[in-house]
């Protein structure tokens, strides 16, 4: 899967969605309203209580926008391939991907790149711009670099989580409950991690490292002390995403290999 071929697939997807331009744009609007309501609730919460564990509204807004932004970018790549995998197995269309000379993982991602996350990007981008302009951040080359790396690496973490869920669902069960649980787990990383117990902190740091998409780098940006884990681990953010994505990719590929064997 070369970048040119990938881009070709994305253009096809966009053209496909634009066939139903009205429905596509309305869908973006509806999702935008959904996320706006979520933001409004958190804003109302901070409006009433001023801070959560010392984090004020601009800082919480930074966590929220990082969470939505990285999810939107990650999900644009892996959400549709992973949720549609089940149906493809049932209908036998997965074979059309497997017989292609390109790597099945990247083929699926290219074919099913989801262009429907534009409202997420717009909304999260706006909130983040406001948040980083308002929150007390000391801007140095290192902090700018960390923020950019967080968006890239965080998106990989989110994409990897979806990939692992897809692998699990491919082998064991229907997937929608798992994706719903992931949505629920995403809410953990929209708040300062210290308010949660030891177990959630360990899980979100060492097992499913979603906290590296929001909390750990944000804590460095606003010079917050460490919690269960020391504050400096936020600097590991640029490494965590690629490594976790590689693990997810390997796991998925192994799951698919097994499927080929069973198809015999």
């Amino acid at each position: 899967m070369t970048p040119a071929l990938f881009w070709h697939h994305v253009r096809l997807r966009l053209r496909e969605r634009m066939e139903y331009r009205g429905a596509f744009l309305l869908g973006l609007l509806a999702q935008g309203i959904g996320y706006a309501a979520e933001i409004a609730v958190i804003w109302l919460l901070l409006h009433r209580f001023e801070a959560i564990a010392g984090w004020m509204w601009p800082e919480i807004a930074l966590l929220y926008s990082l969470s939505v932004l990285t999810y939107a970018i990650g999900a644009a790549f892996t959400y549709s391939p992973m949720t549609e995998l089940e149906q493809m197995v049932q209908r036998g269309t997965l074979e059309t991907v497997l017989v292609k000379p390109t790597d099945p993982f990247w083929t699926l991602i290219g074919q099913r790149f989801n262009v429907g996350y534009l409202s997420h990007l717009l909304l999260a981008g706006t909130v983040m711009t406001w948040a980083i302009a308002t929150a007390p951040i000391d801007w140095t080359p290192a902090s700018v670099g960390l923020l950019v790396a967080t968006v890239a690496s965080g998106s990989m973490i989110q994409a990897a989580v979806l990939t692992l869920i897809g692998t699990w669902a491919f082998r064991f069960t229907r997937s929608w409950t798992l994706f719903a649980i992931n949505g629920q787990a995403s809410r953990f990383i929209r708040f300062p991690i210290g308010i949660f117990g030891i177990i959630p902190q360990i899980l979100l740091t060492l097992v499913i490292p979603l906290a590296f998409a929001t909390y750990y780098p944000a804590a460095i940006l606003i010079s917050e002390d460490g919690q269960l884990f020391p504050g400096w681990i936020g600097w590991l953010t640029p490494v965590v995403g690629p490594v976790f994505m590689w693990v997810a990719y390997r796991t998925w590929t192994r799951g698919i290999d097994r499927y080929q064997g069973a198809g015999g």
């Binding site: 919460l45 209580f49 959560i52 564990a53 069960t173 409950t177 798992l178 719903a180 649980i181 629920q184 787990a185 809410r187 953990f188 708040f191 300062p192 308010i195 949660f196 117990g197 959630p200």
Partner: peptide, 20 residues
């Protein structure tokens, strides 16, 4: 899985209110 889904919602909300 559904039980886990509900419990996660409760854990998150309870932690937020404890902090507040």
């Amino acid at each position: 899985l559904s039980i886990l889904f509900g419990l996660l919602a409760i854990v998150i909300q309870a932690a937020i209110w404890r902090a507040l």
